[in-house]
Amino acid sequence: MILFKCGNMIMLSGFILGNIGCELWKGAVTMKVNRVAIVLVVLVIAIIIAVYFVSRGENGDGKETGSVESSTLAIPGPDEFDPEQRHFPREFFDDSQYQVGEYVVDWNGNPVYTPHAVNGEPFGEFEPREEMDCSLPGVVNAQQQYVHGRFMLVSEHDGPTNFDHLVPTGYAHSAVGAAVAASNTATMATTYYDQLAFEYWRDHIHTPDAAERVELGAKTAGPHHAPLPGMNGFKIETCSSNIVVAHLAYKNVGSESWIVFRLPMRWANGMWEVIGDDLDGERTEQPTIYSLDGWVKVNAQ
């Protein structure tokens, strides 16, 4: 999968990563992760490289959140974890623009809000559902919030509304709730090795390599690369009382195209969790699309 073209190419876990900025990332990813993580790592790194060239020159329930200062070249250990830290100095990325109570924009020009509560805040009016709701609107209104040094989507009616220590929970028992939970798993967990990612892998990701990832523990004190923006749209492949298979579309920076990932989700203990076997892993990366016609669009506000 070539995200950026350049004269020199390198291989990253079986995928081609273009752009001369690749040299900045040699050796940055050496740990074995499952296919979902590998694909998302490629996407995140591509976005970071693009951003580098473009931009270089209390949570209501009282629970803690986590993260700490880190950089891509010298990452502090997890013992330096600070649950109240807001900003995370990282090589080639400065997040000081994300000020509490203010809006900025992500790489694609979508608004990002930094909430007063360190865990994030509700947006809109949550609609709890006892029975599974597979219906889909044409547009989902959501707020993209900057928490823990990464982006989190909070939909207008489908959550998240709460936290299990560091992990956002309280999603609606609906297809939209499953898709939002899938996107947040992708942007908040799969490409990181800090405490928040560890808690996701331990409790809410059930794939062939999850046990190995959990055994690694928390390897970094906080997020060590720039954040991945939330999804721009989604489709639902399968929807039943407890299983939803969602296709998530993420816009390529500077291009009218979207990278698509497929994530199976399971409703268990009041939470949407990522599941999958080896075949699901092989199907994670889907063909690039060039229009969101026919997709449920996410309207970031």
Rank of each mutant, 00 (worst) to 15 (best):
F126I: 05
L12H: 04
P128V: 08
A46M: 00
A189N: 01
N184D: 12
M31L: 04
I48P: 01
C239I: 06
P111R: 08
L166S: 05
A46W: 00
G109R: 07
E58I: 13
L17E: 03
F4Q: 13
R266H: 06
G62D: 14
V214A: 09
I20L: 13
T65E: 09
P76M: 09
S70G: 15
N232Q: 15
D280E: 14
H225I: 15
R266L: 06
V147A: 03
F123V: 08
I259S: 08
M271I: 15
P137S: 06
A37L: 00
A226V: 04
C134H: 03
V41F: 01
C134Q: 06
D209K: 03
M31C: 01
G138R: 05
H204T: 05
G254S: 06
A210Q: 12
F4I: 12
A46L: 00
Y250I: 06
F126S: 04
T169M: 07
N119T: 14
G270L: 12
I243W: 01
V147D: 01
M11C: 01
D95N: 14
L279R: 13
Y290N: 15
V214P: 07
K5L: 10
A182H: 04
G101N: 13
A246D: 02
T169G: 02
P223H: 09
V253T: 12
L12Q: 05
V112W: 02
L216P: 00
I48L: 10
V147S: 03
E285M: 13
R56G: 14
V42I: 07
I48T: 13
A46Q: 08
P287L: 14
W107K: 00
Y171N: 12
V298C: 05
V140R: 03
A186Y: 00
V214E: 07
D94G: 06
A300W: 08
S96D: 12
D203R: 04
Y146Q: 10
Y171T: 10
K297S: 08
T288C: 02
P115S: 10
F234L: 09
P208I: 02
Y250D: 09
R283H: 09
P287D: 12
R283N: 15
L136W: 02
L228S: 07
Y146M: 12
F53M: 09
A175R: 10
P83E: 09
K251T: 13
S240E: 14
T114N: 03
M1H: 07
N19W: 00
